[in-house]
């Protein structure tokens, strides 16, 4: 049953095109940024700009996750109230909202993998071209790949942010009174 609600959440979130696209792209940028920062920390030994970049990305990431959880409940409070009226429990609605939040992050992660391939290809092509112009040879080992570890670590970090966002959303769902479904617009 929870899986069914998760599937329905995916369908519903994909139809919320504007909100979904904006947040999914923001997650993509943030996951890419955080992965890249972790890669730089590993290479540089964890000092300087790389660490600052990492912590800024984390701060923005957690803010964005909480904002997304808050927006979902806030914008859909009348729908949540209606679902409560027609017999959905708080747990059912939590499953749906968790689906909204998790799917957006997971898709952001999948997009990051795609972006990383393109990033490596574009940078590798430009560096190889520059090397050719300078008359030197380009070593493929110098290709600026973000390795798998930073991406996986970033995904785990963002997943834990989403769990916090889900907990926040769940608290807000509890506060939505079903009675507001019966209120008139503007009342």
């Amino acid at each position: 049953m929870a899986f069914r609600l998760f599937k329905k959440a995916v369908v519903m979130v994909l139809r919320e095109k504007k909100q979904f696209t904006v947040f999914c792209l923001m997650y993509t940028v943030l996951i890419f940024w955080t992965s890249f920062s972790i890669e730089l920390i590993i290479e540089s030994g964890g000092l300087g700009m790389a660490s600052a970049s990492f912590f800024i990305a984390l701060g923005v990431g957690i803010f964005l996750s909480l904002l997304y959880g808050w927006i979902i409940v806030r914008r859909n409070s009348k729908i949540i109230a209606t679902l409560k009226c027609i017999g959905w429990t708080n747990g059912d609605i939590n499953s749906l909202v968790s689906g909204f939040i998790l799917f957006t992050t997971i898709l952001g992660f999948i997009l990051v993998i795609e972006v990383l391939f393109h990033y490596a290809a574009i940078v590798g092509y430009l560096e190889a071209a520059a090397a050719a112009l300078n008359g030197s040879t380009y070593d493929i080992a110098e290709l600026p790949l973000v390795s798998l570890l930073p991406v996986v670590v970033t995904f785990i970090i963002f997943l834990s942010f989403q769990i916090i966002a889900i907990l926040l959303a769940n608290r807000k769902i509890l506060k939505v009174r079903p009675i507001i479904a019966l209120k008139r617009v503007g009342e």
Binding site: K78, C85, G87, L182, R184
Partner: peptide, 16 residues
């Protein structure tokens, strides 16, 4: 919630 799901149907003015 269970009672409403099993025994009650709601019709709203704003359709919802």
């Amino acid at each position: 919630s269970k009672i409403r799901r099993q025994k009650v149907g709601f019709v709203f003015q704003d359709f919802n």
